[in-house]
Lab assay of single mutants.
Amino acid sequence: PDLGLTQLFADPNLIENLKKNPKTSEMMKDPQLVAKLIGYKQNPQAIGQDLFTDPRLMTIMATLMGVDL
């Protein structure tokens, strides 16, 4: 199971919303991170391994779920 990750990354406004959010806007200036996020739309399971190697993803996930870290 993808634990709902498919829906989190399926939002067509995902990148724009993250660019507008004060907690994630600075991160979204990294083209490699943006490319990763776009890739998760097609393969949400890929985030599982990346969560352990890129701490920014935890902040992004929390933001998408509405959790304040």
Rank of each mutant, 00 (worst) to 15 (best):
P1W: 02
P1D: 10
D2I: 15
D2L: 10
D2V: 15
D2K: 14
D2H: 14
L3R: 09
L3I: 12
L3Y: 13
L3D: 11
L3E: 14
G4L: 15
G4S: 15
G4H: 13
G4P: 14
L5Y: 12
L5P: 07
L5R: 05
T6H: 14
T6R: 12
T6P: 09
T6D: 12
Q7H: 14
Q7F: 07
Q7D: 11
Q7S: 11
Q7P: 06
L8K: 06
L8R: 07
F9G: 02
F9T: 02
F9N: 01
F9A: 03
A10Q: 13
A10P: 02
A10M: 13
A10W: 10
D11K: 03
D11W: 02
D11L: 02
D11P: 03
D11N: 07
N13M: 10
N13C: 08
L14S: 03
L14I: 10
I15Q: 01
I15D: 00
I15N: 01
I15R: 01
E16L: 08
E16V: 07
N17H: 11
N17C: 07
N17I: 14
N17M: 12
N17S: 11
N17F: 15
N17V: 12
N17Q: 09
L18E: 00
L18Y: 00
K19S: 09
K19G: 04
K19F: 06
K19T: 11
K19E: 08
K20G: 10
K20M: 12
N21K: 03
N21Q: 04
N21P: 00
N21H: 15
N21S: 05
N21Y: 07
P22A: 09
P22V: 06
P22Y: 05
P22S: 08
K23H: 13
T24E: 00
T24H: 02
S25Y: 06
S25A: 14
E26A: 10
E26Y: 06
E26L: 08
M27K: 01
M27C: 04
M27D: 02
M27T: 02
M28Y: 01
M28G: 01
M28A: 02
K29L: 10
D30I: 02
D30S: 03
D30W: 01
P31T: 10
P31E: 10
P31F: 04
P31Q: 11
P31S: 07
P31M: 07
Q32W: 13
Q32D: 13
L33F: 11
L33A: 01
L33S: 01
L33H: 00
V34D: 00
K36E: 03
K36W: 06
K36Y: 04
K36L: 12
L37D: 00
L37H: 00
L37Q: 00
I38D: 11
G39F: 14
G39C: 08
Y40T: 02
Y40P: 01
Y40V: 04
Y40L: 12
K41C: 10
K41P: 06
Q42G: 11
Q42I: 10
N43W: 06
N43C: 06
N43F: 09
N43E: 05
P44T: 06
P44C: 05
P44H: 07
P44E: 05
P44Q: 06
Q45C: 09
Q45T: 13
Q45F: 07
Q45D: 13
Q45S: 15
Q45R: 08
Q45H: 13
A46I: 08
A46E: 11
A46S: 13
A46R: 11
A46D: 12
A46F: 10
I47L: 14
I47Y: 10
G48W: 15
Q49T: 13
Q49P: 11
D50I: 04
D50Q: 04
D50L: 04
D50C: 05
L51D: 05
L51P: 04
L51K: 04
L51Q: 07
F52K: 15
F52P: 08
T53A: 11
T53C: 07
T53N: 13
T53Q: 13
T53P: 03
D54N: 02
D54G: 01
P55M: 09
P55I: 08
P55D: 09
P55L: 07
P55A: 11
P55V: 10
R56T: 06
R56Q: 08
R56H: 06
R56N: 06
R56M: 07
L57Q: 01
L57R: 00
M58Y: 13
M58W: 15
T59W: 12
I60R: 00
I60Y: 01
I60H: 00
M61Q: 02
M61P: 00
M61R: 03
A62Y: 10
A62I: 12
A62Q: 13
A62K: 11
A62T: 12
A62E: 15
T63E: 10
T63A: 15
T63H: 10
L64E: 01
L64T: 02
L64W: 02
M65T: 10
G66E: 13
G66K: 09
V67L: 14
V67D: 14
V67P: 11
L69N: 13
L69I: 15
L69Q: 13
L69R: 08
L69E: 14
